[in-house]
Design a protein around this nucleic acid. Structure first.
Length: 235
DNA sequence: GTCCAGGGCCTAC
DNA sequence: GTAGGCCATGGA
């Protein structure tokens, strides 16, 4: 059997196991597309609880709109998002993104996500501080575009279950998932969006609870009996 | 005190 | 092209 097929089957099996074990995850908790995009930047290498603190402070300061955020003096913005860590970098990233958003799309999500997502993705990647994962989270969660977002948990879970090896790139993993769900009963725009949304959230859920870096609790993991390839480098 | 969290950039080799 | 350092806070 070609390895591509074997991998595609594994990915959908992992999804089905996780969906059954954890149920709907209801990501991404936000009131507006702009709030989601701000969250996507703030959550870079950061615990979501700390991101929520920062978002809550931005809300109180009435800075959860593009115009509101840019109105803030830099030092005040830094202070508000401080709980999310890397606050100096993230202040620059938020401002650069928001300026682009207003200049290019008038600060209107309907105009922004009218663009083909492939083009939009390139535009996002060209912004300072927005890499593949942040761009894909923005496209998927704020824009409802059919794009899967790969994160550290995706890599860890896939690697521990032999779906990928340590050399797999972001784009390789992304293609693997999108190919697995991109045909047959799993296909369709709306269906893909909700699948990618759920799958990403489910991988984070299993990663947090059972697939920790140091002490993985594989005995109780819903994927526990799937083939595993644990190595010394297994992150 | 140590490790880790829903990354990305920059520099050195 | 890639490994390693850096950015920073808060919880376990």
């Amino acid at each position: 059997m070609p390895s591509q097929n074997r991998k595609a089957v594994s990915v959908s099996v992992i999804y089905q196991r996780l969906a059954k074990a954890f149920g709907p995850q209801h990501w991404w908790p936000a009131k507006s597309p702009f709030e989601m995009m701000v969250g996507a930047i703030l959550t870079q290498a950061t615990n979501w609880r700390n991101v929520q603190r920062a978002i809550s402070q931005l809300k109180q300061a009435q800075a959860l709109s593009a115009e509101g955020l840019l109105r803030l003096p830099i030092l005040r913005l830094q202070r508000l998002i401080r709980p999310a860590g890397y606050f100096r970098q993230k202040t620059q990233r938020l401002r650069a993104f928001t300026q682009w958003y207003i200049h290019r799309y008038g600060g209107r999500p309907s105009r922004m996500f009218q663009r083909p997502w492939q083009i939009l993705r390139q535009e996002l990647l060209a912004l300072r501080g927005i890499g593949p994962e942040t761009a894909d989270c923005i496209l998927l969660y704020a824009g409802q575009q059919p794009v899967f977002a790969v994160d550290a948990y995706t890599r860890r879970v896939f690697r521990r279950h032999g779906v990928i090896d340590g050399t797999a790139t972001y784009e390789t993993i992304q293609r693997l998932v999108m190919k697995a769900f991109g045909r047959g009963a799993m296909s369709g725009w709306t269906h893909s969006v909700s699948l990618y949304n759920e799958f990403h959230a489910l991988l984070v859920a299993v990663g947090k609870r059972y697939c920790q870096r140091k002490n993985p609790d594989c005995d109780h993991c819903p994927l526990g009996d799937l083939p595993r390839k644990l190595t010394k480098e297994d992150g």
